[in-house]
Design a protein around this nucleic acid. Structure first.
Lengths: 147, 147
DNA sequence: TTTTCTGCAAATGCTTTGCATGGGA
DNA sequence: TCCCATGCAAAGCATTTGCAGAAAA
């Protein structure tokens, strides 16, 4: 549990360090982003937030997520389909494994991309600042359902 | 030029093989998707098409691109930002290198991802059907402009 | 001639924005 | 008290859809 608390604290510090205020709604959004390993969408976050703060608006959740994105405290995992998912626990680039059927997203263990990135920068002259590696497939549960 | 012609022919065959008709508008869209190495957006394609067929509607371009997507004849490169880009010459998964400033997209040469994919399938039980590997950075031209 | 396609406009769905009120610090 | 944040509703935008007329085959 401590790792999650640390992560939440560092998000709060980031907010406090700037001119941003910590409101109950923001705190609720941060908590969900840090604690969930399901890579929730804005709508998912909203549904959880209104359990505790029923008057919260969807716009506020959007604003908070956008703010965290700008501060680099949340990773956006967007697909063309207009329904981005977010990770507040690991806000840095890392591979994902996405089930095309149930939309589950998990974080697989793969070797680091560092050497591939360095080689690419050498070859192309780009200054590479980010990357994205996603695998799409059908998860074991969905494969079982199909039988 | 022959490789491009071959690619166009195989797209046309795919259409002819099903119940789809080859209209001037569709042919124009296919040509652009095959010939361009700029990974054009739907709007980009539309702008080119109306040079030859001024009455073409944006909806028709969308419908053609969607059809090709369903047939597996074009690769969609979508970012969260709602402005997908398309590749009709290489409709299969391959890495991209994207300039965050000018939005240029190029296809770098990297080793195959096959072994990483196989290992992941073994480790997770997923049946992996697709992947995506994108690098983001600043291209040499934009770096020069910034100086 | 038959069936699909086109082009227009309206609709959709996620996300952003403007603004008056509310509430942290 | 002073600003920033909230919440509502309206606006934005890329994309999709419905449908009548046009055009492949």
């Amino acid at each position: 549990m401590t790792a999650l608390d640390d992560r939440l604290e560092s998000m709060l510090d980031k907010l406090r360090g700037s001119k941003y205020r910590i409101t109950p709604q923001r705190l609720a959004v941060l908590r969900i982003l840090v604690q969930s390993d399901a890579h929730p969408s804005v709508e998912d976050i909203y549904q959880e937030v209104i359990e505790d703060f029923p008057t919260t608006s969807l716009a506020t959740v959007y604003k908070t997520v956008t703010l965290l994105k700008e501060l680099g405290e949340v990773l956006e995992i967007g697909f063309g389909d207009g329904r981005s998912r977010y990770d507040g626990y690991k806000p840095y680039a890392h591979p994902h494994l996405i089930c095309l059927q149930c939309r589950r997203i998990i974080d697989p263990d793969l070797g680091p991309m560092a050497d591939m990135t360095a080689k690419l920068a050498r070859d192309t002259g780009f200054r590479i600042v980010n990357h994205r590696l996603d695998f799409f497939g059908i998860c074991p549960d969905c494969q079982a359902d199909a039988e």
